[in-house]
Design a protein around this nucleic acid. Structure first.
Lengths: 338, 338
DNA sequence: CATTACAATGTAAACGTTTACATTTAAACG
DNA sequence: CGTTTAAATGTAAACGTTTACATTGTAATG
């Protein structure tokens, strides 16, 4: 492998000059510049990133931790992260946790061991593994939480998200305003703070409207097609079944609609469905899905910006940044039958 | 930042011993092992990956190049890649080309400059940027192509894929066997060899059955929801419109179904639709989508295995590995009306 | 107890950069 | 043309590991 030394020898200059040619070309005279350029071309030299990063003490890597690759909403967030990453010259390392909560130690160690310069968590951080000790005497590692709302213990991290509780409340209120009284809620994983926030909003809206919540109406959808299909089938067997279901994400809503129609019922005529996230497939579902839209790309961009600042040491705060959500009414919701 | 030196000093041993403790603990006596272990715990030392990788000359990184993040099929492939990567201790760096073809030089340089140990291309490699010169006197960089079929110039790379042409032919033949004669084909990007292969298969099936192909039946779907919706709307305005559409991926099929139903027509009663990939949403579409299934995860696994071998220098061949596809008949296809 | 053999540990070089500092070269000036 | 000054280049140390080789320690053997 050809190194800077070889280039220097061939160009008849010192390695420092070659290095300067690469990093601040205006510091080297045109004449030498040409010599070096030619040597590089002749040898096909490419600077060794490993050595360079080592020397500079910077990895230029960001780890993005997602519950699972293949979630359309997170992809949209990633898109935003990418924009900024590219602009700021970072590479993105995607880590899939397979829906497990994130062990803080595991990922903060990636910072201390210089595997990455910063971390974005789109997954839930498990509260109990957070260990003050690891940080003893150290600066906080640059970590930004995104999308997941933040429990109090975690408030020391900056984060970017919508107000899940308010959004869920609005969605539920919309169903109530249509005349629904028996409204079910399909949850995600219960260890997810995001799920908790949305459930909170649902409960709040129901109790504000003095509507009871039957235990049977809390459905476990696991955020997945399969989980949602199973629990929808169960729901349909209930004797006094709800007239509307609020699903904690669009994918579950999609599955719910499918099962309802398969059972010979109609959406929204028999059952109204409302989703969450506004993934790109929502619009082409049958019926097009009423859902809560999040500005996914913007969330990604803001998150990445804040991470960059944290890496530069400029972001000390733990401020939570809340971005606006929006209820998008399409055709999967209608007044209850009868 | 605490380094191996600090640990050594505190433990009262040499840095070599600490290094050995980390890399081959059985070479150090229990007594010393304990001292080192304690020192590490006390200092919170974490080996500097940057230095380590630099010294070892290995990045432990694999770059996976995708046309776009957020394509359900590729996510499934990635899942397979991940399995093997985890097992073999590689991290995955995802690069999104935004549907641009891949410049060979750009990515092979990542190998020479030690940004990554190997590359998996899920995107189309642009034939013309391939530059023999770059490789002059060098070993071929470890690159494996996946999913995209391979043009002759590229045959020097190992690859894993289904037989797109055969698969597309079968799908088309299936429509023909149902009695369809006017069959449209919705393409992806035309610079994609994958698209070309599928179009080839479609044409082949049609000509084998002595069926003509009207120019209007070649639809530009751009592999996206939006593109597919546009071209479907155009299709519906045709005077003598096809009775079936074969779409080069499921996402376009999804959009096509949506537009057809929006226009007041029925799938499959008025128009049959067949997709490609069998993404997880296919099953919950209305109607559930008839499609060509690819063993996505297996493709990912095999690709990654071959890349590992290429990195170890064991894979010299350029063999193309073909995995089996399968036509999955659901309910979006039926005999033509009348 | 001396000798041998092997295990455990230490020493120091090397990996390919960047960069502070020293030196040389060129330009500018009187 | 000598002197001053700034620009260009060179020298060498440093970054934190790993590892070949040298040294020391320990146990086993006669």
């Amino acid at each position: 492998m050809v190194s800077i030394k070889d280039v220097a020898k061939i160009a008849g200059v010192s390695i420092a000059t070659v290095s300067r040619y690469l990093n601040s070309p205006d510091q080297v005279r045109e004449n030498t510049r040409n010599k070096v350029e030619k040597a590089i071309k002749d040898t096909g030299y490419a600077p060794n990133t490993l050595a360079r990063n080592f020397r500079r003490g910077k990895t230029h890597m960001i780890v993005v931790v997602v519950p699972s690759i293949g979630i359309p909403f997170f992809e949209a967030v990633m898109e935003g992260i990418w924009h900024v990453a590219e602009e700021q010259d970072y590479s993105i390392l995607v880590r899939d946790t397979r829906y497990n909560t994130v062990d803080f130690d595991e990922f903060s160690k990636m910072i201390f061991s210089k595997e990455a310069d910063g971390i974005i968590l789109l997954s839930t951080l498990s509260p109990f593994t957070y260990d003050e000790q690891v940080l003893s005497g150290r600066k906080h590692p640059p970590i930004v939480l995104s999308c997941e709302s933040v429990t109090s213990e975690m408030s020391q991290f900056p984060s970017v998200r919508i107000d899940n509780e308010a959004a869920a409340r609005e969605a539920t209120q919309y169903l109530i305003s249509l005349g629904h009284k028996k409204i079910a809620f399909m949850k995600g994983r219960s260890d997810s703070t995001l799920t908790q926030g949305r459930e909170q909003g649902y409960r709040r809206a129901m109790s504000d409207a003095k509507l009871p919540i039957e235990p049977d109406w809390l459905l476990e959808g696991q955020m997945s097609l399969e989980g949602a299909r199973r629990s929808t089938r169960k729901l349909l067997h209930q004797s006094d079944r709800p007239t509307a279901v609020f699903c904690a994400n669009d994918e579950m809503a999609m599955a719910a609609i499918h099962e309802i129609k398969t059972a010979g019922l109609k959406v929204p005529d028999d059952i109204s469905i409302i989703g969450f996230d506004d993934i790109r497939f929502s619009e082409v579902m049958d019926p097009p899905l009423t859902t809560v839209a999040q500005p996914a790309e913007e969330i990604g961009e803001r998150t990445m910006y804040r991470l960059c600042r944290a890496i530069e040491g400029k972001e000390i705060g733990q401020a939570t940044e809340t971005v606006p959500h929006k209820l998008v009414v399409r055709r999967s919701t209608a007044p209850p039958p009868g």
